[in-house]
């Protein structure tokens, strides 16, 4: 089967790429929302992300990819303590998915053939310790959104239905994409995404031509193209792994905390989540850049990603919220 289009081969869209790399470095940032026109490479980027993520070690046969035998849920039948390495899960949540499929439900096969009451894990179990990707997230059914909000908050999936009473860990990074013309997102769901990106078709002719050429090469000269770009992807993956280590040693000066707080107050972003996310994102960015301490420059570069979607919306203001963030960042932190 064809591998997805390599992440490094995506032309432009620096914001989107940066946001995805930052969540790969620190999953605690809490996901990315990508909003933009059709045909701008949103889905391509998310599908390419999987190849960038370092593999994880999990208990063999564990339905929730637990890292230790003790973390495996008690309802799961697991043969031994054997561990194996798996790619970081990136699970697609299709729009029409029923609640059963998302949370898991009674295993109908076992119920029908053996008359046995067993639990069949759903998408949330598979996404544990990985990514949950929702394309067209703004079209998602309300009751599925409610369910996701709850699980994303608690990190635990609780199923109480059909005589089953099951719970298991469900910690995942939410990645959503959508087209704002087709509907808005609920503020509560918006807030669950750590970073948000607006993408548009490149306006630069040369860039557009490069997009077409690379896509064409991917489709018609697949082998050579993949050799070239998978090497780039591997380098990027190494940088991400190195940044994860560097992040632990990164200095966070008092001044940076002050900068972050001031910025959030000036922007009037709701709640503390914005401050925490901005700080985490700036730290991950500094680690990625291989810098030893957090500086004002790092904060400035990721402020729009972390705060754009958290500001009170003023629908009568025609300028995008990205522009407002940029203006206030320049006022507060200097340019």
């Amino acid at each position: 089967m064809k591998q997805p289009f390599p992440f490094s081969a995506i032309v432009g869209q620096e914001d989107m790429k940066r946001a995805m790399i930052l969540t790969a470095i620190d999953p605690g940032i809490g996901g990315v929302l990508v909003f933009g026109d059709r045909g701008t490479g949103k889905s391509t980027a998310v599908r390419a992300l999987a190849a960038l993520l370092p593999p994880i070690a999990a208990v063999k046969g564990c339905p929730v990819n637990a890292a230790r035998r003790a973390d495996c849920p008690d309802w799961a039948v697991i043969a031994g303590d054997e561990m194996h390495e798996i790619p970081t899960p990136v699970v697609d949540l299709p729009l029409g998915a029923s609640e059963d499929r998302v949370t898991g439900a009674l295993d109908i096969e076992k119920a029908l053939t053996n008359g046995e009451k067993a639990f069949q894990p759903g998408l949330l179990a598979r996404a544990n310790r990985g990514y949950l990707y929702i394309d067209e997230v703004n079209l998602l059914e309300d009751h599925i959104v409610d369910l996701l909000l709850d699980v994303a908050q608690s990190g635990e999936n609780v199923v109480e239905r059909e005589g089953l009473s099951i719970r298991h860990a469900a910690r995942f990074v939410l990645v959503g994409s959508g087209n704002p013309e087709e509907g808005e997102l609920r503020p509560q769901l918006l807030d669950r995404f750590g970073l948000s990106v607006d993408v548009a078709s490149p306006t630069d002719i040369e860039q557009r031509i490069e997009v077409i050429k690379r896509r064409d090469a991917y489709e018609n000269d697949y082998t050579a193209f993949m050799v070239r770009w998978q090497a780039e992807d591997a380098m990027l993956r190494d940088r991400i792994t190195a940044a994860r280590v560097a992040l632990k040693q990164l200095d966070t000066p008092e001044q940076s905390l002050r900068d972050v707080a001031e910025l959030c107050i000036a922007l009037g972003s709701d709640g503390l989540r914005g401050e925490l996310t901005l700080l985490k994102a700036a730290r991950a960015y500094a680690a990625f850049r291989d810098d030893t301490a957090l500086t004002r420059g790092h904060i400035r570069d990721v402020a729009a990603l972390a705060l754009r979607h958290r500001m009170r919306r003023d629908p009568l203001d025609d300028a995008g919220s990205g522009t407002r963030v940029a203006r206030i960042v320049a006022e507060t932190l200097g340019s």
Partner: peptide
């Protein structure tokens, strides 16, 4: 060819790059 098609798409106001592909 790619160059010509991209320019033509821009002149016709076609934003989606999928169309050029």
């Amino acid at each position: 060819l790619a160059h010509t098609l991209v320019l033509l798409a821009v002149r016709l106001g076609i934003t989606s790059l999928r169309a050029v592909g």
